[in-house]
Design a protein around this nucleic acid. Structure first.
Lengths: 158, 158
DNA sequence: AGGCGTACATCAGGGCTTTGATAGTTCGGG
DNA sequence: CCCGAACTATCAAAGCCCTGATGTACGCCT
């Protein structure tokens, strides 16, 4: 019973941010679990999913879709490419950009992995009423606005 | 305008998990921002905060409090120790465990950093009514339960 | 006392993520 | 026509985080 672990845990957890973090962790853990058999990480799956909706997109745009930095996406793409799940080739009209698309193997793998990933989200949705889901989304979106827009007043004058 | 970016973004974002992830990202980004002047990352701050509530705790327990693996906590502690913000010494009664506590410099830094970190959470809380906060917490906690408990039915027979 | 289960610390390896900096490309306005 | 702004890709360095695997110390139970 060193140091009243119970009490400390409460002190740490009361913050609303803790709840958000906890939920995100649980979501990531569960998705990782169902994706593991396919040898995919969550970011890898996310990239492939986005790629299935927007074939031939540039790495930078893909990064924006997945809400990560271009550097992060670059590492994800690199490992996917090394496994032959995606293919990159220089664009014909834009000498700079690398056109990225799922390989046949990638499409096949994604189809199977997506079923599992969707099932996780579905299990989540099914545990709530549609109203509750909408409410949750609305509250979270408001939180995002508060956190991003609010605060930093570093001369937003112009 | 390659590939209907707008449309794709919607398809990616509709999943409830996306909202949670987005909120968590915004929270992390904002906390990172206010912590940067102190040279602290969010995990480092979290560890120091927990350490302030439970001085002399073991690394493993600290990891549990912060919801990370012992390995992750070990790396965090190592960098904190290299900056003289925490001190570790072998326990007297348990030859195995390393007792970790904040140094004086660590306490001083935490006091200042904590004010900023709390301000972020406070800004978040102030943007909602108490009822809304409670509701958000309740929904998120239910989501956690669904994600962790539900699902894996690998023979819970006994 | 000896053995087993629990807990702690740590090494090794693979990935993700961020900030900062470099460099080539494209396009439009001066 | 040239230059700068915007976009793209990439290198480098620092951290964080997880899985898996050791090795060791403790404590209880037989």
């Amino acid at each position: 019973m060193g140091t009243d672990e119970k009490k400390v845990a409460e002190s740490v957890a009361w913050r609303p941010g803790g709840a958000v973090k906890h939920a995100e962790q649980a979501l990531m853990a569960e998705k990782s679990r169902v994706l593991r058999p396919f040898g995919l990480t969550v970011p890898q799956y996310a990239a492939m999913y986005a790629l299935s909706l927007a074939p031939g997109i540039s790495g930078a745009k893909l990064a924006r879709l997945c809400s990560v930095t271009p550097q992060s996406m670059a590492t994800v793409i690199k490992t996917l490419e090394s496994r032959g799940l995606v293919e990159r080739r220089p664009s014909s009209d834009h000498a700079q950009v690398l056109v990225t698309r799922l390989s046949r193997a990638g499409q096949a793998l994604l189809r199977k992995a997506d079923a599992e990933a969707v099932a996780v989200e579905r299990r989540l949705v099914d545990a709530f009423t549609p109203d509750e889901i909408a409410l949750l989304r609305e509250l979270l979106e408001r939180a995002v606005v508060v956190l991003t827009d609010g605060g930093h007043d570093d001369d937003a004058s112009f």
